[in-house]
Design a protein around this nucleic acid. Sequence first.
RNA 1: GCGCCCGUAGCUCAGCUGGAUAGAGCACCAGCCUCCGGAGCUGGGUGUCGGAGGUUCGAAUCCUCUCGGGCGUGCCA
Length: 559
Amino acid sequence: MASRGENIFSAREAVTGAIVAALEKLDIRADEGSIMLERPNDPSHGDLSCNIALVTAKKIGTNPRELAARLVEGLELDESFIDKVEIAGPGFINFSFSDRYLTGQVAAINKLGDSYGNSNLGEGIKMQVEFVSANPTGPLVIVSARAAGIGASLVHILKKAGYTVEAEYYLNDAGSQVRKLGASMMVRFRQRLGEDVEFPEDGYPGQYLIDLAVEIPEDEGRGWIKKGGDEAVKAFGDYTLDKMIAWIKSDLEGFGVEFDVFFRESALHARGAEIEEVLALYRDKGSVYEEEGAVWFRSTDYGDEKDRVLVRSDGTPTYFLADAAYHLNKFRRGFDKVIDIFGPDHHGHIARLKASAAVFGAPDDWLTVLTVQWVRLIEDGKQVKMSKRAGEFETLADLLTDVGEDAAKFFFLMRKMSAHLDFNLTLARKESDENPVYYLQYAHARICSVISYAQGEGVDFPEDSSCVELLTEPEEKELIRNLVIFPQLIEGAATSCEPHRLTTYGQQLAGSFHRFYHICRIVSSDTRLSEARLMLASATRIVLSETLRLLGVSAPERM
RNA sequence: GCGCCCGUAGCUCAGCUGGAUAGAGCACCAGCCUCCGGAGCUGGGUGUCGGAGGUUCGAAUCCUCUCGGGCGUGCCA
């Protein structure tokens, strides 16, 4: 058992342990995993609620309230953190934290600082999160921006939960898209020279290629054209690709999103090892057959809805084969778990990728594929029209200049990723109280300001933290209760891969701080109380700034 | 046709993996600054949780069916 009062888990674990022991006294077997402790919605129901009596009563032929009563009788709890146990409703057993435990947390958070909420949940587990991975054929658009915000936040959260995490971007720098890119660019260049050439039907029509074509040194471009045919297209393609990749990287950097690895598909083809190996592995398993001159993967054996082509009848590998090889490469790199965050247009790939992972022997839960849904931009209550075909779209860079990094990230993270997002540009632009991102940032800035004001008035952090026992007002307790659930929130957000939980939490925490601030004057003539409230404000600042950091949003000291 | 996602307050959405009386923000109305930051606080809600069945002590949450909306369903990537 952890030392008493040190953190929320000691209390939870102690209660769980006590319940298991009490069950044993009644000859009921239970493992700790089956004991659910939940936080009731209604504060009058205590801090932790257990439904074990409701779940178990029928099996042993009694009614829940009676079983609950017998359990409570057998409970042996440390009174330093639980001071009330009640049976309520149909048979819930409710536990309330003691004041001593709660106020002790304030001192503990101040002592732990930014490491408060760190977990060992993912200890020893090596994880990879792959996200964005947009084709390098144009600038990053708004869905990619959403994926970038979500992926980056998820990486931060997983790290805080103790996982070892690498962030990766898969660059599709091979295949027909790149040829189209090269062909498009070659036409733009020739148009720039004044030639009357028609733009290809399936080319990339955006203004950005016209702009880029201007930057190509004329002699060099003419030289590429002279190569003729595929060679010429390739020369323009290679040039454009480099520009695009640099552009994408700088956009991401501007958005404060970092990747450990940019993995190129072309490297996979150049090396060939994984691609050959995937084919060989599939053959060994009998999962491959030939039909109409192409090589097929019998992915239907693994739950896919139809079989997939691996090698075309012209002998070239498909995108899917490369992707399967890429995942084999990830597997070989020793990741215990891999998370792919896909855009909404890729969810057809999930089944076949999982199928291929099964073939190369990855455990069922090795690969998790999450999909980020579309973003609609709303301006003045109306949808902003975007047409990718016409090359008109809101890019990540546009969004950043429009609403700024913090508001963009916060808005992306307010909703669960599986839901479509209506991005309210009008609201995100506002630097006012209507904009939710400022609510959290303002709370943080306010605390920083108060702390320095207090220190100016001679109130500072005490050596002896026993003053925290003076924190007894309802607003103080509500604030502390919100601080205390932070570690659990981190674990929940990590295991469910749901960064948006932090935005909801942040708003709740900021709200409880503002209410506390309004009712309880921090700096007063009562020095000891002032010190206690200073510590509470400081603990709040620590948790707020961690929450904002995990979201990728700045925590300003002034605004 | 088949597969995946979404339907919760006027609008945009949470709802902690099945819990107790379903919650925020925005918008709207009315209050609160001689005092640590008013980008703040307080008060104001009659919701078919899209609909119908089912599972059980208990369902917005799980299952089946159904109605709307989005996406996918290439020897494109």
